[in-house]
Design a protein around this nucleic acid. Structure first.
Length: 608
RNA sequence: GGAUCGGUAGCUCAAUGGCAGAGCAAGGAGCUCAUAACUCCUGGGUUACAGGUUCGAGUCCUGUCCGAUCCA
């Protein structure tokens, strides 16, 4: 394709390290970027795909309390669980890290100071529930009381589970602390830092107003609709909590940075950590003056759209703005001595935010608390990764919520993946291996039917490539499946099992053409089905791998150690272009690419 | 309450304002290399509902209903 050597930053939503993720999250935010990144690498572009576990926020501390563990222990446990899942699914993060690292602290604190110096941060006093017994302010999730609307006694801090209404926690009555159980709570004043998003409404409107034609309708219209209201307002970036990143200003030791403010900066800090670990240059993707054409894609679920089309771009603009105050001499308490100064003048803004809707289950969203869940790690122990990759792409919620059912899973795997593609590979390879001494036969002259088939498959590198490029992954799957079917049709027309007895040369040509066709289809399928394409690549007699390797490493820093997942693309030979299959190339003894599912076993699994 | 997306065949989804389509499922036929897979044919529609604009509306406009997300 075009744009060879383009810098593509693939940003993937940061999941909370508070439990096993479910397949809805994988279908929405984690598998699509991997498919996109694998395609872009094959197309010859420089891809940097980063993400990590979100280690801060009340979801973490609440889970820690549930399990009787420290927050850091919960983080390590579920961070490593997710990393294991990524390895099993084959999610090729150039770096998957987490937010409780010295690097992420340093970057967050420097961006905070830069925002202050640019006068996009202000201080304000607000009122909040205080628990004298615990000696702490209570974040919304730590206070319960009676709903101001319906009187429900178990209402949470910001929303009532009974009537669903939202309110300010200060409106609750009969409040009690979830920390100490105390009902003797006070409202106290507390000072916090705010990001001045109101000042960013106009710049964001201008930014969203042009060059966004390639954005998905729902993402673009939603963002424009919100910004047109001109109701963006300051948002607190600090809280009265003790689990989080320290505020780099003296006198605020009892408070921490609010999780949302540091989490979105992970896209930047992870690129910087990647550079430190690999010797690469993160500025090639992030520096707007050095690499103005770098394209940043953010793969997220729809609930995250405001953060990635308004708040995070606003934070980048606030960073990029001309520095108004002297922040070099500003108070830098909390910044580590090893931190390298973040001197980049301007950072790149998002190029596209292909947010997905939700994959639901049982008529509702996946919900851990209601036990309505299909675990990411769990299912990979039971079924092949490529079976899930196919299914979750075929039912991807690209424009609307979709519903996962176990019978659909069985049908997609058995009637499409196995029947259309797996069976094609199996029949072609088996026939070729047995009838032509385990090697690619020498073809005779190709007739019009042969040429027509190869032309059509060759065209897939343009048609399917354009769909991957446009992040229309479901359509890319359908187009590739159509091309696979063309080979089945060709075989039925040519009937090599019949001509073999009467015309060996014609049979050799037919078998050569089909082997060439599946050799190319292997590449077209590779972004979605990397494991089976790699297997087929081996069956066809190649020795170099299509893709690189995933590895995990323990990294030590001033905050302790953390596991990182890294993808090494070196040695990968899969490229997005047709190459001629060499006649005479030795095949390896083939076997089925995919396991056919036993409906009784799968449905039994679903009920058990 | 506001912003936005979605509602199309049994299921999952497509269709610049221009003959409503594909895959799967269902019914029938052919084939036997293949994981009973493959190929061909057929049936299947009040495009949520009510209006409007237009030569022409699934598509644009107004209103209603249902589902979803975000913001209040």
């Amino acid at each position: 394709m075009t744009n060879q050597g383009a810098k593509i930053l693939v940003c993937v939503a940061w999941p909370y390290a508070n439990g096993e993720k479910h397949i809805g999250q994988i279908a929405g935010a984690y598998l699509p970027p991997d498919i996109f990144a694998r395609y872009q690498r094959m197309a010859g572009n420089d891809v940097l795909m980063v993400s990590g576990s979100d280690t801060h926020g009340t979801p973490i501390t609440l889970q820690a309390e549930r399990e009787g563990l420290g927050a850091a222990e919960v983080v390590d446990k579920y961070h490593e669980l997710f990393v294991e899942g990524c390895v099993a699914m084959g999610l090729t993060f150039d770096l998957y890290t987490h937010t409780d690292t010295q690097n992420h602290w340093d970057i967050t604190q420097q961006v905070f100071r830069r925002h202050m110096a640019n006068e996009f941060i202000y201080k304000e006093v607000q009122k909040q529930w205080y628990d004298p017994e615990a000696g702490r302010f209570l974040a919304d999730r730590y206070v319960e009381g009676s709903c101001p609307f319906c009187g429900f006694a178990e209402a949470r801090g910001d929303q009532c589970d009974n009537c669903g209404r939202l309110y300010d926690a200060l409106e609750l009555t009969d409040t009690r602390s979830k920390l100490s159980g105390s009902t003797d709570l006070e409202v106290r004043e507390t000072e916090h830092f705010f990001l001045d998003l109101g000042a960013l409404n106009e710049p964001l409107l201008e930014w969203i107003g042009s060059g966004k034609e390639h954005w998905r309708n729902n993402v673009l219209n939603f963002t424009q609709g919100q910004l047109n209201l001109k109701e963006l307002r300051g948002r607190a970036i600090t809280r009265d909590i003790d689990w989080g990143i320290a505020i780099p200003i003296e006198g605020y030791e009892s408070k921490c940075i609010y999780v949302w403010y540091d989490a979105v900066q992970g896209y930047l800090s992870a690129a910087i950590e990647w550079a430190a670990l690999s010797g690469g240059k993160w500025q090639d993707w992030w520096d707007r003056d050095l690499s103005p054409d770098a394209r940043h894609y953010y793969f997220i679920g729809k609930d995250n759209i405001p953060f990635h089309t308004q708040i995070w771009p606003g934070m980048i603009m606030a960073y990029n703005d001309e520095v108004k105050a002297d922040f070099e001499s500003a108070n830098i308490a909390g910044l580590s001595e090893t931190a390298e100064p973040l001197t980049t003048a301007r950072l790149n803004l998002p190029y596209d935010v292909p947010a997905n809707e939700y994959l639901n289950f049982g008529g509702a969203q996946f919900s851990t608390s209601r036990g309505n869940v299909i675990g990411f790690n769990t299912v990979l122990e039971e079924f092949q990764a490529d079976a899930w990759r196919y299914t979750l792409t075929a039912m991807a919620p690209e424009t609307a919520d979709t519903e996962f059912t176990w019978p659909d899973f069985v049908e997609l795997v058995n009637n499409e993946l196995v029947a259309n593609w797996g069976n094609l590979v199996n029949r072609v390879l088996g026939f070729a291996f047995r009838r032509f001494d385990g090697a690619v036969p020498q073809p005779g002259e190709l007739d019009a039917t042969d040429e027509a088939l190869l032309d059509e498959i060759r065209g897939g590198f343009d048609s399917v490539g354009a769909l991957y490029e446009a992040v229309r992954l479901k359509a890319a799957l359908q187009e590739t499946r159509r091309l696979s079917q063309r080979v089945n049709q060709y075989l039925n027309e040519k009937e090599p099992w019949r001509t073999f007895k009467t015309d060996p040369q014609a049979t050799a040509t037919t078998v050569y053409v089909t082997l060439q066709a599946i050799d190319w289809l292997k590449l077209l399928w590779a972004p979605i089905l990397p494991h089976s394409s790699e297997q087929l690549h081996q069956y066809l007699g190649y020795s170099d791998p299509l893709f690189g390797r995933l590895d995990t490493t323990d990294i030590e820093d001033d905050r302790g150690s953390h596991v990182v997942l890294r993808y090494d693309h070196g040695g990968a030979c899969g490229v997005w272009q047709t190459q001629t299959l060499a006649a005479g190339q030795n095949l390896r003894k083939p076997g089925p690419l995919f396991d056919k599912l036993d409906p009784e076993v799968v449905l039994g699994e679903a009920n058990g």
